[in-house]
Simulated assay, not measured.
Amino acid sequence: MAAHNEQGKLAEELTKDWLTGKGYIFRDANYRHAHAEIDLIFEYQGLLVFVEVKFRSGTGFGYAEEFVDYTKRKLLVKAADHYIHQKDWHKDIRFDIVGVYKDQSNNYHFKHFEDAFY
């Protein structure tokens, strides 16, 4: 596995643990439908929350949230629609982005964008 893929998987695991610690209930990871993949799916305060995780080792090329473009959002919504119908979910949903940043001391920091798009 390429180094950037390994970092991405680590970022997803760290985000899963971080959100679980904030009271989110983990439901699924790496849910695939067609050409789309949802990194993490949680339940939180009656909502089904679809989370896109973006890892950055710095901000020189931009912030994580800037890399979720229109095409990516459209794919995420399509996969989420499939998940909702598959699980027969009838409550509200939300799409979040979590940026995971690694500083020069190898510490990880999170930037959470709730209700980032629809």
Rank of each mutant, 00 (worst) to 15 (best):
A2V: 14
A2M: 15
A2C: 15
A3G: 14
N5V: 15
Q7L: 15
G8W: 09
L10H: 06
L10N: 03
E12D: 07
D17E: 15
W18S: 07
W18L: 10
T20P: 01
T20F: 02
G21R: 11
G23V: 01
Y24S: 12
R27F: 11
D28G: 07
A29E: 15
Y31C: 03
R32N: 06
A34W: 12
A36S: 14
A36K: 05
E37I: 04
L40Q: 00
I41R: 02
F42L: 03
E43K: 04
Y44S: 09
Q45V: 08
L47W: 11
F50Y: 08
V51F: 03
E52Q: 04
S57K: 13
T59A: 03
G60D: 01
G60S: 04
F61D: 01
F61K: 01
F61N: 06
A64W: 00
D69V: 08
D69F: 01
K74R: 14
L75F: 10
Q86V: 01
D92A: 14
F95M: 02
D96E: 09
D96M: 06
Y101G: 02
Q104P: 02
Q104M: 04
S105F: 13
S105E: 14
N106D: 15
F110C: 14
F110I: 11
F113K: 15
E114K: 13
E114L: 12
E114S: 14
A116P: 00
A116N: 02
F117W: 04
Y118T: 08
